[in-house]
């Protein structure tokens, strides 16, 4: 459970520097040095007067199971949103008018965000979940030409190693 800092909340009180036994908090950005951080120590979390530091969980419960009817209903909407996104993206690409492009880009972005949220709630919330894992595995089966299989394999390894580290 490494500590992380929310730089937006940090008020530079530096209490984390005073209490850290290893100097892991001596960084300017939000990333506390994971290699030095004593996992689960939480001295900096308790000392920070601004509540800017928290511990990242290293174990997650399984996702809530989803009914297939709910998943399909969410997918229907997500599909419609990505269609609207792509229509708007095409308008933005081909228009020579800056205001038209601006409006189309806002619509494209809005629809992408809605699609992401709907798909996420259809059972793909957590990158380390079994659902995501089996989706990634299915991508490596008979992939189309030019599909970046190696990227998916790297992801499977990385997300897996996080899972294993936590179960120790």
């Amino acid at each position: 459970m490494p500590a992380v800092r929310n730089i937006r909340l940090c008020t530079k009180d530096c209490m984390c520097l005073y209490v850290c036994p290893t100097g892991a908090t001596d960084t300017e950005n939000s990333i506390i040095d994971v290699s030095k951080c004593i996992k689960g120590c939480r001295k900096c979390v308790d000392a920070c007067p601004s509540g800017a530091i928290s511990l990242l969980p290293d174990e997650y419960p399984p996702q809530q199971s989803k009914s297939e009817n709910v998943v399909n209903a969410l997918r229907t909407l997500a599909k419609s949103k990505v269609e609207q996104e792509s229509l708007a993206t095409d308008i933005a690409k081909l228009s020579d008018d800056a205001v038209t492009r601006q409006f189309a880009e806002a619509i494209a972005k809005s629809n992408r965000l809605m699609a992401e949220d709907l798909i996420r709630e259809s059972g793909y919330m957590l990158p380390q979940s079994d659902e995501v894992r089996s989706l990634l595995e299915s991508m490596t089966q008979n992939p189309p030409k030019n599909f970046p299989v190696e990227k998916v394999e790297t992801l499977l390894k990385q997300l897996n190693s996080i899972h294993k580290a936590s179960s120790k």
Partner: peptide, 30 residues
């Protein structure tokens, strides 16, 4: 109702959302 396959557009949104999920966990490479 059997589960419908995801279209490329949906898969794209799914992956960009998982990217955000990794960002929140400071998993930059993923």
């Amino acid at each position: 109702e059997s589960l419908r396959e995801l279209t490329p557009g949906e898969l794209s949104a799914l992956c960009s959302n998982l990217a955000k999920g990794c960002e929140k966990q400071h998993l930059t490479e993923a």
